[in-house]
């Protein structure tokens, strides 16, 4: 009884408890997969930085798979036909040698087998969604920004053109009058600046403590994927121990709070709406959690792209969620 008490108390109040040892091999395979593979591969979720591993055990021999998992660098160097083809197919991003031992590779294979059997077929959501994409559209905030920029640029160009052309008919200029004009312009510019500051600063996205979010989603970014969960994942050891959300669904019109951190380098968490326009973003930083609050009014499929360069797989680092 005292042991249970100690465990419960330790879990609730101790700083950070050690990860619970997961004894069974299948569990080990799942944890290994989440920690080492899931940043580039899915099982039935479609290809990402690397191929979808659904049914990989049926496509390739066990011997080949074990060798590729443990020594991908050597197989590529030896110009193994399949390995080279995969490198070509996946934008020449090579699979790194993760230092896995044969027993670990076996455990991984066991997980791939079990997960392939559990998942019916690779998800076709992205493919179908992409096929249905129409012309890109500009939503209001973005077109306002572009409009303001074009308008001011046009004024700058017109003024410069007018002054440039005036040199065709040279004449002495009344400097005193010009300085008076400058004073007026300086004052006007200052007023415009102060007004612009007053108008735009309240729109800053930083969390307002008085608002209570309807839903909290934890996001752990890593090279090269985003992991969603209901519990904070703050280290690689948490992966596999804390359940992750494979398919994230959010209620429409709810205030959602993403708590974004990173397990390795700086990443960006950019939320793109169904119009394929940026709605909100925050940085994912190692050691810190950024709190991003968004109210997603419109239903549909939202994409998340990495908006801070994070090495070779940066452009392939993406995720998404459904809003209903």
């Amino acid at each position: 009884m005292h042991r249970i008490v100690a465990v419960v108390l330790a879990l609730l109040f101790a700083p950070v408890g050690p990860a619970r040892a997961e004894a069974d091999a299948a569990g080990q395979g799942r944890i290994l997969f989440e920690q080492k593979c899931a940043s580039c591969h899915t099982i039935g979720g479609g290809p990402r930085v690397g191929p979808d591993l659904h049914g990989a055990h049926q496509r390739r021999s066990e011997e080949w798979l074990i060798r590729f998992i443990t020594q991908p660098d050597r197989m590529i160097a030896e110009k193994d036909e399949v390995a080279v083809r995969l490198v070509e197919q996946f934008n020449r991003i090579v699979m790194p040698n993760l230092g896995l031992k044969e027993a670990e590779a076996q455990a991984l294979l066991g997980h791939i087998r079990a997960a392939s059997d559990a998942a019916a077929a690779p998800a076709e959501i992205p493919a179908a969604a992409v096929a249905a994409l129409g012309r890109p559209q500009l939503i209001a905030p973005q077109s306002i920004v572009l409009g303001i920029f074009f308008f001011i640029s046009a004024i700058i160009l017109l003024v410069f053109a007018w002054v440039g052309l005036s040199t065709r008919s040279p004449e002495e200029v009344n400097v005193k009058k010009a300085y008076g004009f400058r004073k007026a312009m300086f004052a006007t510019a200052s007023v415009v600046v102060v007004a612009a500051l007053a108008l735009t600063m309240p729109g800053a996205p930083y969390a307002v403590a008085s608002l209570k979010p309807d839903r909290i989603v934890y996001v752990a970014a890593r090279q090269f994927d985003f992991v969603f969960s209901d519990e904070p994942i703050t280290s690689a050891a948490d992966l596999g121990r804390i359940p992750t959300l494979q398919r994230l669904e959010l209620p429409a019109d709810a205030l959602v709070e993403f708590r974004v951190t990173s397990l390795d380098v700086n990443h960006g968490f950019g939320v793109y709406g169904p119009e394929r326009q940026l709605l909100a973003q925050t940085q994912a930083m190692p050691g810190y959690v950024n709190r991003l609050r968004v109210r997603l009014a419109q239903g549909g499929y939202y994409k998340v792209f990495c908006l801070e360069y994070c090495a070779a797989g940066h452009h392939a680092m993406q995720s998404g969620f459904n809003v209903k």
Binding site: A10, F13, P15, V16, P232
Partner: peptide
């Protein structure tokens, strides 16, 4: 109890 760490309290 059983699924978290202390900082969460």
């Amino acid at each position: 109890a059983g699924g978290g760490e202390g900082g969460r309290m």
